[in-house]
């Protein structure tokens, strides 16, 4: 029974994850690969060369990671309190507020790009990393609130009430109850926010105005290339960056939170 489950699980992951990624890796090294060959007939590193020769690659990596980190930070700062209210309080018009907070990801990006740009120009953050960071909040905030809301619902308010009645301060409640208990939510939110921020092209292009060169700014134009190897190599790099980021975050988390409380909450 157990073995059957594992082999089923493995084939699903193989199909949905390993196969496409392996296919991309092979494509990134292919020079000649036409129908009906199963594998390329000629191999080369042209795809990766185009990537390495990109003069702004390292600048873009730095900018992307920096902006991603800021966006994650602000998201946590705004989303955490809002999610707590939505999880524990009920009040008039709650469904409306919930739907409203989900709006940014429900509307077509093209429809709001112009309005967002005008706002950014008026408050003086257009063509600046700050504007880009602000605009990246739009597609990420709803996810953060959602993730933390279900996190809070899972934990429940019981511990908080208990601790408060025993005389704990709000700060203590936060650091010793919610922070460790919500660590999985923090992980998921951080990762998702970073991935979304990284892949914003249209908004970054218009608001950043070319002054803010993120990885998406150099990656997306290559997607209209005819050369499959170039597209594949850029895509792989693009997917690798969030993994690197989450590794850094993981180290930070372990530095701040005692290891024991981490293992306790992991299922």
């Amino acid at each position: 029974m157990k073995n059957r489950h594992y082999s089923f699980l493995f084939s699903i992951i193989g199909l949905l994850v390993f196969f496409p990624v392996a296919f991309l890796i092979v494509t990134s090294f292919a020079l000649q690969w036409t129908w009906p060959q199963i594998l390329p007939t000629e191999w080369s590193t042209i795809g990766w060369n185009a990537l390495i020769e990109e003069p702004k690659l390292f600048l873009a990596l730095r900018t992307s990671i920096g902006i991603g980190a800021i966006v994650v930070f602000i998201n946590l700062a705004i989303g955490f309190p809002a999610a707590k209210v939505l999880a524990f309080q009920s009040f008039k018009g709650k469904s409306f507020i919930e739907a409203f907070l989900l709006m940014p990801i429900l509307i077509p990006g093209l429809a709001v790009a112009m309005g967002l740009h005008l706002t950014m120009i008026r408050i003086g953050v257009a063509d600046h990393w700050a504007g880009v960071a602000l605009v990246h909040l739009v597609p990420t905030i709803p996810y953060t609130i959602k993730i933390f809301r279900s996190g809070f619902e899972r934990v429940g308010s019981f511990y908080e009430l208990q601790a408060l009645s025993l005389g704990a301060s709000q700060k203590e409640v936060f650091t010793s109850i919610y922070l460790p208990q919500l660590i999985t939510s923090i992980r998921s939110a951080t990762f998702l926010i970073f991935v979304i921020s990284l892949s914003q092209y249209a908004l970054t292009a218009i608001i950043g105005g070319g002054n803010v060169v993120t990885l998406a700014m150099i990656y997306f134009p290559y997607l209209s290339s005819v050369n499959n190897a170039v597209i594949a190599s850029f895509s792989l790099l693009f997917a690798g960056i969030p993994l690197l980021f989450i590794l850094i975050i993981e180290i930070v988390i372990r530095m701040f939170i005692p290891y024991r409380s981490l293992t306790n909450t992991q299922q």
């Binding site: 940014p104 509307i107 709001v112 112009m114 309005g115 602000l134």
Partner: peptide, 11 residues
């Protein structure tokens, strides 16, 4: 959401 997205939708 109100300032950024609301205004943009209005536009």
């Amino acid at each position: 959401v109100f300032i950024f997205v609301g205004y943009a939708i209005m536009m």
